[in-house]
Amino acid sequence: MTDARTESAVVVAVAWDDADAVALRAEMAAEVGPRYAALLRSLPENPNAVAAEAVAGTFVGYAPDAAGHVAIRWNRGDIEVKRMFVRPRHRGTGMADLLLAAAETAARDLSAPRVVLQTGHLQPEAVRFYERSGYHRIPLFPPYEHLPLSNCFAKHLI
């Protein structure tokens, strides 16, 4: 999606440890983490942990400052969208659409048959966004089977 607000926006592939990517993930953790802190403490390990070596792509959106982040990783033959985040002042500008499109393009370039993702039950705005973006609900998939309130989605690319 491109509109007057995203006309000058750009999404750039970066390394997982890129300073802007790290800062955006930290902001996401600070915003979303408290919503799920009690739930995550009850689990033996954090299913949302992302090992840098498992990442297949990391992207930062600029408009003109660092506005958002998304990463992708392989998960059992699918590409999984991880760490999708847009800074509050850039929400509603189309930045999330640009980031998700970059993730989907990268997944196609990797010949992935579909893209999957998980979002928490305390993020209804994310659920609406993914449904609006053509994603459909699927059963919980590993490693999220221990989070029964999770929302899992997929979008076929072929």
Rank of each mutant, 00 (worst) to 15 (best):
E27I: 01
H90L: 01
L122S: 08
R41W: 01
S8T: 05
N75I: 02
A67K: 04
V12M: 10
P142R: 06
L140P: 02
E131I: 02
V127P: 04
P143M: 05
R91H: 02
A15T: 10
G68D: 05
P47K: 13
S133C: 10
Y135V: 09
T93L: 14
L100W: 03
N46H: 07
L110C: 06
W16Y: 13
F153K: 00
R87M: 06
F129Q: 10
A19T: 15
R128V: 03
A38F: 02
R83M: 10
I72W: 02
V86Q: 05
H146F: 03
Y135A: 07
L140T: 02
P47N: 09
A13F: 03
L100T: 12
T58M: 11
H146Q: 15
R108V: 08
I79W: 03
G68P: 01
A21G: 01
A29N: 13
A15K: 15
F85T: 03
A102L: 09
L100M: 13
R137P: 02
A4Y: 11
R108I: 06
P124R: 10
A19L: 12
A96F: 05
S150T: 13
A13C: 04
C152A: 10
I158Y: 00
S42V: 04
L98V: 00
E53H: 14
F59Q: 04
R91V: 06
Q118R: 07
V32Q: 10
L24R: 01
P64D: 12
